[in-house]
């Protein structure tokens, strides 16, 4: 059974269809990188997996559990209860482009918040876990700082630690380096690379093609709300078939060659 199973995912805003039937699986421990121009629907797809966006058709399963909606025997689609969905979200960690740390809490408290407030773990245990994770992302010395004092790269590493603190089965990365100054991108990618090596199941939406080739087990190229091409990085990057993917690679070629 795949860890993530997406079947015919459809979403529209009023008349505009932004996801036109997306289907793919992610196996346990696999790293899937999603590429695509802005407006291709890749971030929306990612947000659907965590149910930050509602979707109107198809289904998503994490480790066999349907996310967001269940289908009754009569084929009727019903939204699951808020508490059930919250429970499912615990298994999916998400890291955002804009970090979205909680500015009123210290770094340590940010990482502890999930275990404490969602999982109800004892404070001492939660703190030990949080310190472990901060050490892992190299920010133990910043534990008592407020996020506003940290650089973008540091904030994003805290974001990763905060998501990991929920001990999720799956991690989603939504253009996590796009808001960073170029010199800060490396430290974040390093942490993600380490996670991949440890066997975390990951979906990464990014523009870092070099990173995609290095770390990804598989690349999916999306455009206009649909999957255009997919395959192992070496093949697909060397021999893009569609014009749209070729065009996309040409635009980001600079990044590709530089790194």
């Amino acid at each position: 059974m795949p860890m993530i199973e997406i079947r015919d995912l459809r979403k529209s805003y009023a008349e505009l269809e932004v996801l036109k039937g997306i289907s793919f699986d992610v196996e346990k421990g696999e790293v899937v990188v999603v590429l695509g121009p802005s407006g291709s629907g890749k971030s929306t797809m990612l947000r659907c997996i965590n149910l930050l966006e509602e979707f109107q058709g198809g289904g998503i399963r994490i480790d066999g559990e349907a996310i967001g909606y269940t289908t009754t025997e009569g084929g009727k689609r019903r939204r699951r209860k808020e508490a059930e969905n919250a429970k499912l979200r615990e298994q999916v960690g998400m890291v955002f482009q804009s970090f979205n740390l909680f500015p009123h809490r210290t770094v340590l408290q940010n990482v502890m918040m999930g275990p404490l407030k969602v999982k109800g773990i004892a404070r001492r245990e939660a703190e030990a876990l949080a310190r472990d994770l901060l050490k892992k992302v190299g920010l133990l010395d910043k534990a008592d700082q407020y996020p506003a004092r940290l650089s973008g790269g540091q904030q994003q590493r805290v974001g990763i630690a905060r998501a990991l603190a929920m001990q999720p089965k799956v991690m989603l990365f939504d253009e996590v380096t796009s808001a960073l100054d170029p010199e800060l991108v490396g430290e974040v990618l390093r942490v993600m690379r380490q996670l991949a090596q440890e066997g975390m199941t990951m979906i990464i939406v990014t523009h870092e093609i070099h990173f995609a080739r290095d770390v990804g087990d598989r690349i999916i190229f999306m455009d206009h709300g649909a999957i255009v091409e997919e395959g192992p990085p070496a093949n697909i990057l060397a021999n893009p078939k569609s014009d749209r993917f070729k065009q996309f690679l040409r635009r980001y070629q600079g990044d590709y060659l530089d790194t």
Binding site: N50, A83, A86, F96, K117, V118
Partner: peptide, 25 residues
């Protein structure tokens, strides 16, 4: 809205997110 997103992505219910993330800020 991003603060709501971050809180809910961690599995917080609406009430938990309101109490721990939104109201203090």
């Amino acid at each position: 809205q991003r603060q709501w997103d971050a809180a809910r992505a961690m599995g917080m219910t609406w009430a938990t997110a309101l109490r721990n993330v939104i109201l203090p800020q």
